[in-house]
Amino acid sequence: MSKLKAFVIGTGVAGFNLLNSAISILRPERCGGSCGNCNYACVPTIFVLVGAGGLVVAYRRLKARFLKRRSEV
């Protein structure tokens, strides 16, 4: 992995963590995430990120399987 890629990933995650933490301004300390006063702004973001990660993995796996099968044929 290139240093640039590592830096970009690291900065992105740090930024995301900061933004996610900033949401705590809208909600009380040690919020259990149940009152909804913050409109759960963080939840869709995380679901999108996790979902996108899952899709990327699934795509790469399927692509690898497809290429393997094609090379066998």
Partner: peptide
């Protein structure tokens, strides 16, 4: 990078006056 990036965010947040969730 993910781990240390998350850590940097985690450590920077209190310095900026933001509480970590």
């Amino acid at each position: 990078p993910v781990r240390y990036g998350a850590l940097i965010g985690f450590l920077t947040a209190p310095a900026l006056g933001i509480s970590v969730v």
